[in-house]
Amino acid sequence: MLDNLLILTAVPVLNVQLLLDGLFIGAIFALAAYGLALVWGVMNVKNLAQGDFVMMGGYIAFVMSKMGIHPIFGLPVAIVLMFAFGWIVYRLIISRVIGRDMFTSLLATFGLAILLQQVLNLIFGPEVQTAESGFEIRSILGGMVTVADIKFISFLLTAVLAAIVVTFMKFSRMGQAIRATAQDARAAKVMGIDTDRVYAFTYALNAAICGAAGVLIAMIWVLQPFFGLAYSIRCFVIVTAAGLGNLPGVIMAGLGLGAFEQFGGFILGAEFQQAIVVGMLVLVLLIRQFQQGRQRQAVV
């Protein structure tokens, strides 16, 4: 562990490599986390199947690349398919847990997560997969730092997707209805908004966002049926750290988590990757509790 720290100080350019990798992957975390913040904020559902939606999107890209289609075209396909999938899941499961106690939605989506990861496992097997983009890998800073073109492209795509979603939420009728429902579902209902449809759309939109994130992850990182839970936890870490309805916070927390994981994984060793993720979860919850517990206050 100390050796690795020494390497970082001896070869400072490695820090740049880790930081870049962290930011590239962190941007995708932020995208998926934004989806979680959306369903959490609008319909108060803590979606533990979040990461499994990401994995599903990733496997869509993987299948396409196996079929000889460039995985980047998986983006629109995954968005459409996952949107439909999200809508169905809402109709079958989520619509029945909305408004019940919070553990219900958490456990129902946990059940969904187990179901999805096992189905993926049955179809694709437990091997680690990736969807090759075939793009070039560039060296910068005298060959010490490598940046795959696909990472850069995925970073741009993430930004574009985020911009589209934000614009949609701000200016479209549905986006406004979603925001109104988030603020006060009953008032929105009284004002004639079909909240059930808004919920269905929100959940489907979240699934689509996750699907898109999954496609990008398939191209720049790896897929595995059981990695979904880690992504769900990452999303929870980011949303808990940033708070609901705080887009800049989600972006910062996402990028930060990505970088933190890269550095942590390098310093402690790759076997600590998962431990870092869950460790961050415990840490973020503790900090949150510490902040709240400092003084007397109402727990609502």
Binding site: A108, L112, L115
Partner: peptide
């Protein structure tokens, strides 16, 4: 395991 996931969902919902 798929059945387990389904059981959890049906049970809780």
């Amino acid at each position: 395991w798929v059945a387990l996931g389904a059981l959890i969902i049906i049970n809780i919902v």
